[in-house]
Amino acid sequence: MPREKFHTLTEQMFYVLLCLKEECYGMDILDKVPAMTNRRVNVGSGTLYNLLEQFLEAKMIEETKVEGRRRSYILTQKGRDRLEAEYRRICAQAEDYRRLF
């Protein structure tokens, strides 16, 4: 059975959504993610472009401003719920780890 889209978020998806907790220009996410992860995670320009398009399509983010080609986005309630669910999943994983080690 095909897996539901965005059922589990990849690391890149997670951080892109996290950046959009507040209104943010798409391009700025390229710098924000490495800054917030101490350069541990980088998002490629192609990956970001496609993710923004897919998140918009899935109504997880919405466009707030268009200035020429620059566009800014913000999380929708659906996006917040998905991010929250992912956070809980990661926490549960960490909890399992702590319980066993």
Binding site: E11, M13, P34, V43, G44, G46, T47, L51
Partner: peptide
């Protein structure tokens, strides 16, 4: 350089 494609899932779908 940071690669253009950094998420294999997104990459394969694209």
């Amino acid at each position: 350089p940071v690669p253009i494609e950094t998420d294999p899932c997104v990459d394969v779908e694209n």
